[in-house]
């Protein structure tokens, strides 16, 4: 078990005492036939938090999110979404969730406003004093930036516009928890940026917990309060992008030349080492270079190794630097 992930997980396995906890996953396991996809995933999320589940393809991100959505049965472990086991979630529970699905060709003959009004109508009986459901449709269309296209058919929209419709469908019931699985897969950079702006707007408006999966570190960094790195069926590191960077780049590489020869040294205290270096050799030192391994470097190594089948080694290395 990764040290950093352990730190996120309370030792008690009883029901959550903290009322702000919306996602509570403990030792989640999933096995297809003889293949273990998830081997003990644990994490928690609080109201209003944005979590990114980051990992290479095949790391188990989609499996995890589908178990939380209640679309897939788990093999073991304890999962609670809004205090309820997704395997036994009823329609009232479902009304408090938002799921942003990948679209393809569905509802292409429907007009945007018509579709949102239709899907929204299912949520009306689940209004509470705190949350009026569904979202006012024209307001929602404005939030996702589709006002000009409200009367167009879904099939006539561009890829980026269609994605906004998907997001609008996901949030039409004013969810307390929103799931986004690979929200920007297949996006061009401009569409990706627009989508990020949209997610930021959402978290500003409602106190929604968002769990998104991505294999793009940059995206996780931009969107999430906390990043969970999933590899080999478990969470090998978690924290904010800053925390992860600091933890992972603890070691810096110092390169210099001295009397025509080149030297490389790895150290946790680069500043101290360089000060010492100059104190001893002074003018002899040339070509000095101090380089910290960035989060991205380390993550890319992990992904590369994972895809070439050396996942365990890379995972261990990652844990070592993360310690």
């Amino acid at each position: 078990m990764a040290v950093s992930a352990e730190a996120e997980t309370p030792t008690s396995s009883g029901p959550p005492t903290d009322r702000g906890v919306t996602l509570d996953v403990h030792d989640l396991r999933m096995r297809y036939g003889s293949t273990d996809v998830l081997t003990g995933v644990s994490f928690r999320a609080r109201r209003g938090e944005v979590l990114a589940l980051l990992g290479p393809n095949g790391a188990g991100k989609t499996t995890t999110i589908e178990i939380l959505e209640g679309f897939r049965m788990r093999s073991g472990g304890r999962v609670e979404v809004l205090g309820i086991d997704p395997a036994r979630g009823d329609e009232r529970w479902r009304s408090r969730l938002g799921v942003v699905l990948q679209s393809w060709r569905d509802h292409s003959r429907w007009r945007v406003r018509e579709l949102l009004a239709h899907l929204g109508s299912y949520y009306a009986p689940y209004s509470t004093e705190r949350t009026s459901r569904p979202w006012h449709i024209d307001e929602l269309i404005q939030v996702v930036g589709l006002t000009e296209h409200a009367d167009k058919k879904v099939g006539q929209l561009s890829g980026g516009q269609r994605r906004r419709v998907d997001v609008a469908i996901g949030i039409v019931g004013r969810p307390e928890v929103l799931f986004l699985d690979e929200p920007t897969a297949g996006f061009d950079p401009a569409a990706r940026r627009e989508f990020h702006d949209l997610v930021h707007r959402l978290t500003d408006i409602d106190d929604t917990t968002i769990l998104l999966t991505t294999h793009d570190l940059d995206e996780a960094e931009k969107l999430a309060d906390r990043i969970l790195i999933l590899a080999g069926g478990r969470i090998i590191a978690s924290g904010s992008a800053d925390e992860l960077s600091r933890r992972i780049s603890a070691d810096a590489e110092v390169r210099w030349s001295q009397g025509g020869a080149r030297f490389v040294h790895s150290t946790a205290d680069a500043t101290g080492f360089v000060r010492e270096l100059f104190a001893q050799h002074g003018e002899d030192i040339a070509d000095l270079e101090v380089r910290r391994a960035s989060l991205e470097d380390t993550y890319m190594t992990l992904v590369r190794d994972h895809e070439s089948g050396r996942a365990d080694g890379a995972t261990r290395a990652f844990e070592e630097v993360a310690r």
């Binding site: 959505e69 679309f71 699905l101 393809w104 060709r105 569905d106 299912y122 949520y123 469908i169 019931g173």
Partner: peptide, 20 residues
């Protein structure tokens, strides 16, 4: 067709959507 294009899954993600 609607199972393949994802319409059904949207219904499933909506409260009482499958009934509707």
């Amino acid at each position: 067709v609607e199972r393949e294009d994802g319409t059904l899954l949207r219904a499933k993600a909506t409260p009482n959507g499958m009934f509707g």
